[in-house]
Design a protein around this nucleic acid. Structure first.
Length: 554
RNA sequence: GUCCCCAUAGCUCAAUGGAUAGAGCGCUAGCCUCCGGAGCUAGAAAUAGAGGUUCGAAUCCUCUUGGGGGCACCA
């Protein structure tokens, strides 16, 4: 249990004991104050209690503060207008680095999620062309949010929903097949409504067809799945190999139909009285669950809508696979779907269990002008190209720093500059610097033990305990924050808190490193070395959650 | 027309309703006989506008202005 948890429990207990008459006490929030002069943690609970108790908040704060903490752990003081501020004792902070090293990779993980099963769906772009920058945003935010939830004690399942049936896939197949024949010298039209990007050509090169004489319509059917698989293979390679995004499953829409889940869900909704026939079409009464209009499930011409698949998929998540929660990352151009998806979850017995994260669109700027990207026109910048240009770490960090609801402008002209001056290097440099010091210490020790070449002449390395003063405490305070950051970021589904924490930590380290030497001649300051090793561990853990590499040399 | 998102330093972004709004890049002035200067220190610089709620508002509410997106028996 973290120090913050302990404090939180102590305050809750105090409030309950002191004012048992309160039916609905406010939630106790312990947070680090912005200004370190107010201590290491603070709570505003006295201010929140004041109206109900009809007493001055300062008096309430004092009653909460008295005897809250053992003096050996830290001190408690009250401050106007009614804060309770907690300052950790130097001895408490002194124990932090060794504790972190004992926990190792586990440091920062918690059990706030209590093992609840969360389904996270992200990207889910139609496999009809290469992924673009907006998909990259979904890829990184989805991946890291999943990592965060896992670290916070949820059981996370990551999924890419593949729309492998429907008109867009048919159009892609036709595009590739026509290119295939044109390549073979067969005169053939290539209409405008087909996909125009260069990737169509690339797929056509990979396509192998026998029986070229077969008629177009039959051929299209037969090669459709082959084309789709080729496209999907490209996407998987990018996402899993280059971007390092992990999925538990690539869920195909066609699986729903193979299992007749569409018919199943229709029957279920009919049975529950949630559909009606109007103008020859079958509608789901989603307005009963907060949607702004009802939605068509089966068109008058008998075709099923995409929304029917969606409902079947939602049902599959909650009722067949029994997830407790579902999170979906969607681009802003899909935000109109949120209402109906939530309505579907509610209609299927899981109100509030489906959460959508709307990511605002990424605008591409080139030469000061917005570039309109279109898959069909093929004039867009792909995620592949971005990663070619700046590398996966920079791309990740860049996207992760932006909260989902930020409208991003991506300036191509600045991209290279931004990549060279990207703050990710600042964080990685801190890690590499620590590794360098540790290597140096190990080198000294080896020489002493006779492993090194100059074993005889190496002199005596002395490991001494240094004092743990204010500079050390300052860095330790940042290290101590990490588990709280993970917990809070997971609760708020706010992965951008990780890169900003990483920057804070790197800054605290660089500052410390500049003023405190670990090695003086042949004397190694053990206290400082341990502090640095703990810093390295936290940097590694944080970078690992973000999916960014932690290089030992740069 | 209507609904959703956004507006914070010159630029790109942070900040569960808390105390003196933080970084990076850029700018100004300093710091290498020393473990990695991809670093450190100091400085100038911001909550679009007007009301409201609150002990307390960048954050919540209303209106205004300016951007982006959605409003299919498309997928």
């Amino acid at each position: 249990m973290t120090i913050r948890h302990q404090l939180q429990q102590a305050v809750v207990k105090r409030v309950r004991e002191r004012w048992p008459e309160l039916a609905d006490p406010p939630a106790v929030v312990i947070e680090p104050p912005r200004d370190s002069r107010h201590g290491d943690y603070a709570t505003n609970v006295a201010l929140q209690l004041a109206p109900a108790l009809k007493r001055p908040p300062l008096d309430i704060a004092q009653e909460i503060a008295d005897g809250l903490m053992k003096p050996s752990l830290g001190t408690v003081e009250v401050a106007a207008p009614g804060f309770v501020n907690i300052r950790l004792a130097s001895d408490t902070l002194k124990r932090v680095p060794a504790a972190i090293l004992r926990e190792g990779k586990q440091y920062g993980t918690g059990d706030a999620g209590k093992g609840a099963r969360v389904h996270v769906e992200f990207i889910s772009a139609n496999p009809t062309g290469p992924l673009h920058l907006g998909n990259g945003r979904g890829a990184f935010l989805g991946d890291v949010t999943s990592n965060l939830l896992s670290a916070a004690g949820y059981k996370v399942w990551r999924e890419y929903y593949v729309n492998d049936i429907g008109k867009q896939v048919e159009t892609l197949a036709e595009s590739v097949v026509r290119k295939y024949f044109i390549r073979q010298g067969i005169v053939m039209e290539y209409p405008d409504h087909l996909y125009q990007g260069g990737y169509v050509e690339e797929l056509a090169v990979k396509l192998k067809l026998d029986g070229a004489k077969a008629d177009m319509r039959k051929l299209r059917r037969r090669v459709q799945s082959r084309v789709l698989n080729l496209m999907l293979a490209d996407i998987k390679k990018l996402v899993e190999k280059r971007l390092g995004v992990r999925y538990d499953r690539w869920f195909r829409e066609s699986e729903l139909y193979a299992q007749k889940l569409d018919a199943h869900i229709l029957a279920k909704l009919r049975h529950d009285g949630l559909v009606e026939v109007r103008d020859g079409a079958v509608w789901m009464k989603t307005t009963q669950f907060g949607d702004d209009k009802d939605r068509v499930l089966v068109k008058a011409n008998g075709e099923q809508t995409y929304f029917l698949s969606d409902v079947a998929y939602v049902n599959d998540k909650f009722n067949r696979r029994t997830f407790d929660r579902a999170i979906i990352f969607l681009g802003a151009d899909h935000h109109g779907y949120v209402g109906r998806l939530k309505a579907a979850a509610a209609a299927l017995g899981h109100p509030g269990a489906l959460q959508a994260i709307i990511m605002q669109l990424v605008r591409l700027i080139r030469d000061g002008q917005e570039v309109r990207m279109s898959k069909r026109a093929g004039n867009f910048v792909t995620l592949d190209e971005l990663v070619d240009w700046v590398g996966p770490d920079v791309a990740r960090f860049f996207f992760l720093m932006h909260a989902a609801d930020t409208h991003m402008d991506f300036d191509l002209n600045l991209a290279k500059e931004r990549s060279e001056k990207n703050p990710v290097f600042y964080v990685q440099y801190a890690h590499a610097r620590i590794c360098s010091v540790v290597r140096k210490v190990e080198g000294l020790l080896h020489e002493k033990k006779g492993v090194g070449r100059r074993a005889q002449g190496a002199g005596k390395v002395k490991m001494v305990r240094g004092m743990f003063g204010e500079p050390e405490a300052k860095l330790a305070r940042v290290l101590l924050r990490y588990p709280d950051v993970v917990e809070d970021a997971a609760a708020a589904l706010a992965p951008q808190q990780l890169p900003f924490f990483a920057l804070d930590l790197a800054r605290a380290f660089h500052d410390y490193y500049d003023r405190a030497r670990i090695i003086e001649g042949e004397t190694v300051n053990q206290t400082r070395l341990t502090l640095l090793e703990a810093t390295r561990q936290v940097l590694q853990n944080c970078l690992s959650l973000m999916g960014v590499s932690a290089p030992e040399k740069m």
